[in-house]
Design a protein around this nucleic acid. Structure first.
Length: 427
RNA sequence: GGAGAGAUAUCGAAGUGGUCAUAACGAGGCGGUCUUGAAAACCGUUUGCCUUCACGGGCACGUGGGUUCGAAUCCCACUCUCUCCGCCA
């Protein structure tokens, strides 16, 4: 969400940004919101004046009553009543206009970073850098569910009966591998100085609307029936929500947290053939990292964050690349975003395993996350988030890249302490 | 789930319809006086938001409504906290 003052003073920047994101349909909203905002402020000023006079007269009535001058007091009451209707009218107008302004401001996209490539959709995302050799082995790599089945590690059919499409049972060594990766990722981030955290897995609607755009909310979030609660789509939601309505002293920044949680997603929309198995599911587990920092530091943290993910995958012998989200593919709240993609030797291409985002002050403004400088002045923080690892999906990359010709799966050294010292799966 | 109590500034807490909300009183923080230094004592200071070029004005006593000329105070709903009982990993 943008600052209305910024929009008021820079309508052309906001409009150009909307064009850059290929959302032409939102262009008229800019002038509309400027007009509504002006009306709202006018209504407020007039209402404030009436309130001021009412306040003054009411005090006078109090004084008269105390002196027992009832008749004079009654006359004053009359005076207030005269303006009551107009004040109520203005109050309603004020409220209504302000709500309209807010509603529009919620859908006007955040100003994207200068470095973001302009493009319509995900097909125009730009590869930035490769890490590790994307090897294609001489032998054929089976589909990930087949590898898992070889180790009696997955039961999709049973999950289908129990919970429906988009769920899974992981079992035995595959399940253990899943937990091992989460534990390893947790310790990896703790070693980087992040504070480990287990957050609530459900959040209220005011947090939901604070951390994501409406489009995301609609396609992602599960609502609990009869209660004002949603299952989180990622722990970022409850982790950023942790700071709702807070004022933090600047010297306590940056806040660097790494959190574990299950994630629940509706995943509305069509799924292709490559999304079978555990690629796109309604429930998965994830280790996440979030940062709350000063605005001038957020670009530096952005770089640090995605490098953490690259570092983690590299330590598990999985080649990855970074892909910069183009303007059209960037969610409305985001300033800049990079996907980390893992190499699939089976598909001979990279696929998404993590996403690193700088939200600027958009979440902070919606959630009132403020920072107090030493001189007492305040500003909105910048927030960032990034996937450390989301194991069900990353297992695909792990199994494909560590599979050996004899059908065994090699366990990289760093993971062995979490796997009972095993060098190979099913050992 | 049942019964009760509560929510006021950094913390404790007073205020139960008007002249007590830049919020009594106490503590803490900050600045100062005194002191070789510290403690003590004393003096001063210490919420946020909206609006305005500014002067100023408005809003906020958990949240949202209502009653009233006027609400921290009365009424309704909701949220959260505490105590007791029940249930429970």
């Amino acid at each position: 969400m943008l600052d209305i003052k910024f929009l008021r003073e820079n309508p052309d920047i906001v409009k150009q940004n909307i064009k850059n994101k290929f959302q032409e349909e939102k262009l008229p909203l800019v002038d509309e919101v400027i007009e509504l905002d002006e009306k709202a402020r006018k209504a407020q000023q007039e209402a404030d004046n009436l309130r001021a006079s009412r306040k003054k007269i009411s005090k006078e009535i109090g004084a008269l009553m105390a002196q027992g001058k009832k008749e004079e007091a009654d006359a004053k009451k009359e005076e207030v009543s005269k303006n009551a209707k107009r004040l109520e009218e203005l109050s309603n107008q004020e409220k209504e206009l302000q709500e309209k302004v807010k509603k529009i401001m919620m859908v006007i996209p955040n100003i994207i970073d200068k470095s973001v490539p302009i493009g319509k959709d995900d097909s125009e995302n730009v590869e930035i850098e490769k890490f590790g050799e994307p090897v294609v082995p001489a032998f054929e790599i089976p589909y990930h569910t087949e590898i898992m089945e070889k180790f009696n590690g997955i039961d999709i059919d049973a999950a289908g009966k129990v919970a429906g499409n988009g769920f899974y049972y992981l079992m035995g060594d595959i399940a253990r591998l899943h937990s091992a990766i989460i534990s390893y990722a947790r310790d990896f981030m703790i070693d980087k100085g992040f504070t480990y955290c287990i957050p609530p897995f459900m959040i209220r609607s005011n947090v939901v609307t604070g951390v994501m755009s409406f489009a995301e909310m609609d396609s992602m979030m599960y609502k609990i029936e009869g209660e004002d609660l949603y299952l989180i789509g990622t722990s970022e939601h409850s982790m950023i929500g942790k700071f709702i309505d807070t004022i933090t002293d600047e010297k306590e920044l940056p806040k660097t947290l790494t959190s574990y949680s299950p994630c629940f997603r509706k995943e509305k929309g069509a799924h292709g053939i490559e999304e079978r198995g555990v690629y796109r599911i309604h429930q998965f587990e994830k280790q996440e990292m979030i940062v709350v920092c000063r605005p001038e530091e957020s670009p530096v943290w952005f770089e640090k964050l995605w490098k953490n993910t690259v570092g983690l995958f590299s330590s598990l012998d999985i080649p990855v690349r970074t892909l910069e989200c183009c303007s059209g593919d960037l969610a409305d709240l985001k300033v800049k975003s990079i996907d980390v993609e893992a190499w699939s030797p089976r598909q001979k291409k990279y696929f998404e395993v993590g996403s690193c985002s700088n939200l600027g002050d958009a979440q902070a403004r919606r959630l009132q996350i403020r920072i107090r400088k030493e001189d007492g002045s305040k500003y909105f923080a910048h927030t960032l988030n990034n996937t450390v690892v989301a194991p069900p999906r990353m297992l695909i990359a792990f199994l494909e890249n560590n599979l050996m010709e004899d059908g065994n799966v090699h366990i990289p050294e760093v993971l062995r302490p979490y796997m009972g010292g095993k060098e190979f799966l099913g050992q």
